[in-house]
């Protein structure tokens, strides 16, 4: 951080000013002039927090995707199907047992196991053959989509969340002051806050695991130079198996999360795959902090887009992607 300030003092100043202005927007009571430009403060604040929480969901999906790509150079286009399957399984378990947290764990474990099977029986045999891998993952996603349509049909599913998670909470953020001087606080859905907190915890744990443990060291070494790593005697296939399982498991986990505050239906698999592709392209293929930054940017762009320019909201994320590809084709947080 301090090195960045030394090297780019002007940009650092801009960043600090922007941050200060954002803090002002969040904390202060808005003067009427500002409300005319940006609309009511409640709308702005909700869009901001929504964008961050939506980013949390995108991060959960995209981090698994980017991890698998970073290590194995495998663009797993069946990642969205793993997400949807995880969501459906989570729904079944939550419906059967009533345990929401348990359904998250179970979806993670089952999808992780499925990921292991895929890596062990299929992808292991086509290492380094990008085109073949891509085609095979597309095939798998089509097969899975039809199997899911057969089992769960075209209905819309929501994972039932426990009663303590439903409904709004009051955040200590003032959105307006009534004429009586009484402050109006922001009401916000609790479930989204919990999901965001969960995404942050998982992100931090992943960062710690990658940067502070021996297994993490192996994974990082594998990302940098796979052949050298295997030459040093590490059983690289085992590392691949573990990472694929973990990445797939995260997708299943995210499926339950997404099924709780959105819904599950056929077609959701490709939608979330597209979102995570955009996220990792913006953030940088193979970089976990990149996935976090990309998810945040895309989440915020979607939400602010839907509020301030609804007609072009759909295009906005792709505009961002195009800009990033033009200026930094390797992604925002990835060395060239």
């Amino acid at each position: 951080m301090s090195r960045f300030i030394e090297r780019h003092p002007a940009w650092a100043l801009v960043a600090i000013l922007a941050l200060a202005f954002l803090l002002y927007l969040v904390l202060a009571t808005w003067p009427p002039g500002l409300e005319e430009v940006l609309g009511r403060k409640r709308v702005f604040l909700t869009a901001l927090i929504n964008g961050i929480t939506l980013g949390g969901l995108y991060f959960l999906v995209a981090s698994g995707f980017t991890l698998i790509f970073g290590l194995m150079r495998n663009v797993n286009l069946a990642h969205g199907s793993l997400y949807l399957l995880g969501g459906y399984l989570g729904y079944e378990f939550a419906n059967l047992t009533g345990g929401w947290v348990l359904s998250l764990v179970i979806a993670f474990i089952i999808i992780a196991a499925l990921g292991m099977v895929l890596q062990f029986t299929i992808f292991r045999w086509m290492e380094g053959q990008d085109l073949r891998q891509t085609l095979v993952t597309i095939a798998i996603s089509i097969v899975l989509a039809d199997l899911m349509l057969w089992r769960w049909g075209g209905d819309f599913y929501q994972v039932p969340s426990p009663s303590w998670l439903t409904g709004p909470v009051q955040l200590p953020l003032v959105t307006a002051v009534r004429s009586s001087g009484e402050a109006v606080y922001l009401q916000y859905p609790l479930v989204r806050l919990i999901i965001f907190a969960g995404a942050v915890v998982i992100g931090v744990l992943m960062w710690l695991a990658l940067n502070r443990t021996k297994v993490g060291m192996l994974v990082r070494a594998g990302v940098d130079d796979r052949d050298m790593l295997s030459a040093t005697g590490v059983r690289v296939q085992l590392v691949f198996l573990g990472v694929f399982a973990f990445g797939a498991g995260l997708a299943g986990f995210a499926g339950v999360v997404g099924g709780t505050f959105q819904s599950l239906q056929p077609g959701e698999d490709t939608k979330i795959l597209l979102a995570s592709l955009v996220v990792v392209i913006v953030g940088g293929m193979g970089s976990i902090p990149g996935a976090a930054l990309g998810a945040l940017i895309i989440g915020l762009a979607e939400q602010f887009g839907s509020v301030y320019m609804p007609t072009y909201a759909v295009v906005l994320t792709f505009v961002i992607m195009v800009l990033v590809l033009a200026w930094r084709p390797q992604g925002l947080l990835r060395g060239s």
Partner: peptide, 17 residues
């Protein structure tokens, strides 16, 4: 009148509006 794209997953911000 508020218009949202077909296939909108996240209505959070529109709801606030």
């Amino acid at each position: 009148k508020f218009w949202v794209p077909l296939g909108t997953k996240d209505f959070g911000s529109i709801i606030a509006k």
